[in-house]
Design a protein around this nucleic acid. Structure first.
Length: 224
DNA sequence: GCATTAACACGTA
DNA sequence: TACGTGTTAATGC
């Protein structure tokens, strides 16, 4: 089992719970290491746990009948997801692809439901995350028709760096231009040009194998 | 027109 | 050396 110190350092919501609930959550946690290119979840899988990204990068999406990959969200470190399927007790609705070597934390189903039934703090946490996701998806529907490639990249980055959904991420992330393209749904050359534009606009700073966000508010609102 | 793929040179870890 | 970046040419929607 994970130690108390590591628990508080790696699980962003740990400190929001009172000590007895922390203990219950800590006992329900386990960890897995995943290789790039593998799938953590396939659509239709049984739901076994609530999942948090400790390190690395994954992509939540699905594959259309014609075989085209569609991205719904990037999953950077400290992002927790999958509560929807747990709450509804239904099979997974999406695929989760591992983009680069990743470690995940798994809160088992029994602990998740115990916290839902007994912890006010945990329910507040879930409400906050769900509310933030609703905002993201509504904004996505609103803009999807009109966005050009640079704006798509800007929005994808802004989503990754959402401080409510990924509070431990800070303003830097190890992610290369190919991976940004995969998240934004554009090719690598287009991602490359978009990143240069966004850098010239002062919104981000490109680093070798990574990105630093300079102005998250403007990045979120960027429309070309 | 703009995007994609494939290929190349170059720089960095 | 292996990987990431920047760019171009050919091609497609």
């Amino acid at each position: 089992m994970i130690g108390q110190e590591q628990f508080l350092a790696t699980i962003f919501w740990a400190r929001e719970l009172p000590p007895d609930e922390q203990e219950r959550a800590r006992r329900g946690l386990s960890f897995r290491n995943l290789d790039a290119g593998s799938y953590l979840i396939h659509r239709g899988d049984r739901v076994e746990s609530w999942i948090g990204v400790v390190s690395g990068l994954m992509r939540l999406g699905s594959v259309t009948t014609s075989g085209k990959a569609v991205t719904y969200a990037g999953l950077p470190p400290s992002n927790w997801f999958g509560e929807g399927s747990l709450l509804k007790d239904e099979p997974r609705q999406y695929d989760v692809l591992v983009l680069r070597r990743t470690q995940v934390a798994l809160l088992n189903r029994a602990s998740f439901h115990w916290l839902c039934d007994n912890s006010v703090a945990f329910n507040k946490l879930l409400l906050r995350l769900l509310n933030e996701r609703i905002g993201q998806f509504i904004a996505s529907v609103e803009h999807d028709r009109t966005l050009h490639s640079t704006a798509k990249v800007a929005r994808s980055l802004a989503w990754l760096f959402n401080p409510v959904l990924s509070p431990f991420l800070g303003n830097h992330l190890d992610i290369n231009q190919e991976e940004i393209g995969l998240l934004a749904g554009v090719s690598r050359p287009v991602a490359n040009r978009a990143l240069q534009e966004l850098e010239q606009a002062g919104l981000i700073q490109n680093e070798h194998g990574g990105v630093r966000v300079r102005d998250l508010d403007r990045l979120r609102r960027y429309d070309g």
